[in-house]
Design a protein around this nucleic acid. Sequence first.
RNA 1: CGGGGCGUGGCGCAGCCUGGUAGCGCGCGUGUUUUGGGUACACGAGGCCGCCGGUUCGAGUCCGGCCGCCCCGACCA
Length: 434
Amino acid sequence: MRLSRSLVPTLKETPAEAQIASHRLMLRAGLVRQTASGIYAWLPAGWRVLQNIAQIVREEQDASGAQEMLMPTIQSAELWRASGRYDAYGPEMLRLKDRHERELLYGPTNEEMITEIVRSSVKSYRELPQNLYHIQWKFRDEVRPRFGVMRGREFLMKDAYSFDLDYAGAVVSYRKMMLAYMRTFQRLGLKAIPMAADSGPIGGDLSHEFIILAPTGESQVFYDAAFEGIDYTGGQFSFDSEADLQRFHEMMTGSYAATDEKHDTAAWAKVAEKREGRGIEVGHIFYFGTKYSEPMGLTVAGPDGKPVVPHMGSYGIGVSRLVGAIIEASHDEAGIIWPDSVAPWQAVIVNLKPGDAACDSICEDLYAKFAGKALYDDRADRAGAKFADADLMGHPWQIVVGPRGAAAGNVELKRRATGERQELAVDAALARIL
RNA sequence: CGGGGCGUGGCGCAGCCUGGUAGCGCGCGUGUUUUGGGUACACGAGGCCGCCGGUUCGAGUCCGGCCGCCCCGACCA
């Protein structure tokens, strides 16, 4: 995109409503605009980030064997009465009526709907297991939306639902999702720690929250250094190997990890290498047995022909929350520092002197070669303003093209994360990035 | 939902106490200037002062109601 013709409204000053770093930076970098309390419009740059994150989430879900689908945002109240949650869910659920006075709701989650869909189409144990997910907007009428996109009322979530014949099968599905999550967060450039969470009446160790480390996180976290440096994407854990999945699960549950709410000082004392930090919750997975399948009448024919009630689990990632969380984990005084995998553009080409033949020629050439992966700052602004915006927007690379180097066919390459700069020939710079 | 606060050009704010024809900085437009980290100067555009009602000769300012938004707390991807 050419910046001169794009809607990327950066701000020099911070709007008064924004308190935390990610919210301030998202507004200043022109990623989002708030349209109502807890509801945001995603502007071009922000939308690219959101899609990049969603794509990584999607790839890892697919790799785990889950199938993507899309369920609607609007659901009928009837569905929720069947599970008993219509009344139980409370005022957080946005309720609507259509022109015929039929009761509808804007989905806060999709257990009921997916259970109904599976109920109507899956008839035999041979069709299990199934794991279905979608990436869809949710609405939860939070009492107090805050922290920008991290605690909005409308938010984009990836939610997956697994269906297995029995508990043993559900455990395998659970472990696959846990692995998919750790791989996803690693690819997003985040350090994530799975933490045991309340699993309700079902019990067991099959509910985990995924906390990512960020200095400005909401809660204090305590964890074993054993979680550091594990490579989840390198091939040592296969989704197809139950032995791998078990080893992985033991690794994740065998070391101490807790937020301040559940911190156990006695157990903590025994940890050899302690780590503490701040964290943000970005995902939650749990096994809940037949909590929905039972009341909603989901059964399949078992091997002996008799009906069996499938065991379910559900698995959520806050996709839009991740945008804020990544910024909390990766920014400095000047602005955002995007991990390469989620950046809206890999590089910004900063033309210091639009109109100068040498500068224009190098920039146009670079811009074409990046084929959409670079933002071209062709605005007729001061150099300082462009540098400030480039840092603010957080592009992983900045390619500075000025008359000084252009004459010799050189550009300056700056890495946003380290601040490191060097003067290179155009092709050499290009080779470093692509 | 309890507690606190704020709504005045696009953004950040002053003016309100003590009513008298709306102001500052940034941004925006034009021109000159400058030309590698938000340059300087000049001219200019842009405001239902959140909304409704009341008091008053006169309301951004005082009174009442409503709406919106933010912050702290309890709860959540």
